[in-house]
Measured scan of single mutants.
Amino acid sequence: SKNWSEDDLQLLIKAVNLFPAGTNSRWEVIANYMNIHSSSGVKRTAKDVIGKA
């Protein structure tokens, strides 16, 4: 699996709070948010995000 930096983990926590349970396509939305805002340049999929959340 791809390494997660501390910044990416913080971003994931922020995204999970921004897009609560019940959000349509929640994990796709979170992955997309991370891909836009992450400084690491690593592209995450919904599966990556679910695996780490």
Rank of each mutant, 00 (worst) to 15 (best):
D48K: 00
A53G: 10
V16C: 08
N24H: 15
A46R: 08
K2S: 12
S38C: 09
N17W: 06
V49T: 06
P20D: 10
K52S: 07
W4R: 02
D8W: 00
G51T: 12
F19P: 00
N17E: 14
D48L: 01
E6M: 05
G22Q: 06
A53V: 13
D7Y: 05
R26A: 04
W27V: 05
S40L: 06
M34A: 01
G22R: 11
M34E: 02
A53P: 02
Q10L: 10
D8Y: 02
F19T: 05
L9I: 13
I50C: 07
M34G: 00
I36K: 15
V16Y: 13
I13E: 13
E28H: 06
I50H: 09
S40V: 05
K47W: 07
A31W: 01
A31S: 09
D48G: 04
S38K: 04
V16P: 00
N32C: 04
T23E: 06
N35I: 01
Q10A: 08
K14I: 06
K2H: 08
G41H: 10
W4Q: 02
N35S: 08
I13D: 15
N32D: 13
G51F: 10
D7I: 08
V49Q: 02
Q10I: 08
S5P: 15
W27K: 02
I50W: 11
S38T: 10
S40E: 06
A21V: 10
G41K: 14
K2P: 06
A46S: 11
K52G: 13
M34L: 12
L9W: 12
H37R: 09
G51W: 12
S25I: 02
A15N: 00
L12W: 09
K2F: 06
W27N: 04
G22W: 06
M34W: 03
F19W: 08
L18Y: 09
Y33K: 04
K14T: 11
A31K: 06
A15H: 02
K43E: 11
T45P: 08
P20Q: 06
I13S: 15
N17Q: 09
K14Y: 08
S40A: 14
V29S: 14
S1E: 07
Y33M: 01
R26M: 00
S39M: 10
A15L: 03
G41M: 13
A31V: 05
K14P: 00
I36L: 14
L11E: 01
L18R: 09
W27L: 03
K47I: 13
N32L: 06
A53W: 02
I13C: 09
D8V: 01
P20F: 00
N3V: 07
N3G: 05
F19H: 11
V49D: 01
V29W: 11
K52Q: 13
V29A: 15
L12N: 01
N35E: 04
E6Q: 12
S1C: 07
N17V: 09
E28W: 03
N32K: 11
S1A: 05
A46I: 09
L11T: 09
T23Y: 08
S39C: 11
N3C: 07
A31P: 01
T23L: 08
G22C: 14
D48P: 00
N32T: 10
D8P: 00
A46W: 06
V49H: 01
S38N: 09
G22N: 11
M34I: 13
N24T: 13
G22T: 12
Q10N: 11
Y33I: 00
I50P: 03
G51N: 14
A15R: 00
E28G: 05
